[in-house]
Amino acid sequence: MEFENILVEQQNGLASITINRPKKLNALNKATIAELHDAFDQLDKDAATKAIIITGSGEKAFVAGADISEFADFSVEEGGKLAANGQETLFDFVENLSTPVIAAVNGFALGGGLELAMSCHFRIASDNARMGLPEVSLGVIPGYGGTQRLPQLVGKGKAMEMIMTAGMISADEAKESGLVNHVTTQEELIPLAEKLAGKIMRNSSVAIAAAIRAVNDNFVDGVNGFETEIREFGNCFGTGDFKEGTTAFLEKRKPNFPGE
């Protein structure tokens, strides 16, 4: 896969996506959002891909925000469409991807960058990472899911403080608040992401996809996550992965999941 604004690599079931606009601190423009959608879509459809790591190029930023120059003169209608299209194309799309996605946050993750990281299934950060939603300092609010996902991760009070002050928090504070799972050095960020991905990849990709759907449904209005869990749990009994996993357990060997 070749793109203008991102780099994609695949090896032994693990894919990595690097947002590659270092001169713009990897800011998200329309073209980059579209390319990210296409990359995630292609990787998710590839049965050989068992996990995805997303990060930013350079040492300064994961993604420093959205490209403000693209929407500074938008109308009310255009602003609404920008948020709706962005959420559908990338942020909601990543959150509901069947393939697990780990965000490796290096440097600044601001605005749309933090919103992208929050749409991933979980996050790790380098110790120089700084995260925040500065949109109200521009006279707008987070529009790519920030007002919804941040409270889910850090609680309403902390989210309100972060959004209303437009301030940044450190990697350690992000870990304390539950925004990221691990903090490490910048040199060890990708190796740690790969280690975690390796643990994921040893398990059933079919069961992981089912677990993602069940967990996500807990946060959807009008949907009973427990009912989704029961349904997905039952469906697992009809999969080749369940047959292999239980057989391997009884035979006291490591499973070789077929992914079906």
Rank of each mutant, 00 (worst) to 15 (best):
Q87D: 11
K30R: 14
M1S: 13
G107F: 08
Q152F: 13
E173D: 15
F62H: 03
I68M: 12
A51V: 08
N235W: 01
D38W: 06
M118V: 04
S75T: 15
T239S: 06
S205K: 14
T239Q: 00
D92H: 13
A197T: 04
P100W: 00
R213D: 11
M160L: 14
R149E: 04
S204C: 13
A193V: 01
I141V: 12
F71C: 05
L82Q: 01
H182V: 11
D41Y: 11
G56Y: 05
I53T: 02
V8A: 03
A210S: 12
D241P: 01
K50E: 03
N20G: 06
G167F: 01
E173T: 12
N85R: 08
V101G: 03
T49V: 15
A83V: 10
D92T: 10
R202F: 00
G225M: 05
K50Y: 03
F74W: 06
S137N: 08
D73A: 12
G111L: 07
V136T: 14
T228Q: 10
F249L: 13
A207D: 01
A117Y: 10
E260A: 14
I230Y: 12
V101M: 00
L250V: 08
P255E: 07
L179V: 08
T228S: 13
G259K: 02
R21V: 04
T89K: 12
S137W: 02
N216H: 04
Y144N: 05
P191H: 07
A211W: 04
A66E: 10
G155W: 12
I230D: 03
P134S: 12
E115F: 07
L116H: 14
